[in-house]
Design a protein around this nucleic acid. Sequence first.
DNA 1: ATTTGTGTTGAA
DNA 2: TCAACACAAATG
Length: 307
Amino acid sequence: MNANLQRQESSEGFASKENPCKLKSSRYKGVVPQHNGRWGAQIYECHRRIWLGTFAGESEAAGVYDIAAQRFRGFGATTNFKKLCKSDPEGATELSFLAAHSKEEIVRMLRHHTYDEELRNSRRKNPLSGNTCWMGNSNRSHVFEFLFNKTVTPSDVGKLNRLVIPKQPAEKHFPINKDDKIPINFQDGNGKVWRFTYSYWGSSQSYVITKGWRLFVKEKGIREGDVVSFWSSSDCSDLKQYMIDIFHRPSRIDRCVPTSIEDHNHDQVPVRLFGVDISRAEATSSSPQFTMNSRIYNNGHLEKKSH
DNA sequence: ATTTGTGTTGAA
DNA sequence: TCAACACAAATG
């Protein structure tokens, strides 16, 4: 203790390579000085420090912190300078790049100084990825990545009261044991929570959304030929979230306009919002309506219910 | 030998 | 949450 005090007192002022006793602190958030004149970047989460690597330039380290901040805390996070913007093509692709990678992956890239390169590669590989959309307000927004579409069949809106999830996407995105029934919470854009049951019907060898679907269809006016679009995202704690988007058939758009078309921002980029897969599905209008929070599903707490 | 990154503390 | 500080682990 005394030794520390003495050392601090005796080293007034600053330090550089000459005087490594006291380091000049950084003017940037998330940046700490290193004894050799380099700069470290770090971010805190859940009482823990996450080290983002060391860098030659102070501002370089600050930029690294910015990227991490936006991945860890959402896109409204305070940064040193860079604020990714969804309405800017560059920002949009970077946002989806961030969303497509786990925090661990992003941290690895930052620490290895490979983030820029991997981002470039991603852009080259997928230049105009239309398979993303944004949900949320200006403070907090999440990127959703397109998963798959399901065109609603007559039986999906019939008396069976269930929606069939095609086998391939079901097994890829919503794997389930054949005996399980999984409660899944859906949340719409207004914060309303819907609870559905997801299960596998052995009799017809199909994956289905059952309980809750009927009310959903009724309330939203879903009919044969409409398209249900599935999207996924991760929130700040890396929990998967899912969104369902309803695309009404063009022929009946004027007849049945869902409640929230106008709620959902024309400040967002419509081209980007409804990408390749949507147009393929012959949908010309849509509105993000439902956010499905599937913590239960993804935490593996597959509550079995037999009744 | 040098650099990176952690243990720890106290302030905000 | 955040950075300052000491110093240990990792790296060349």
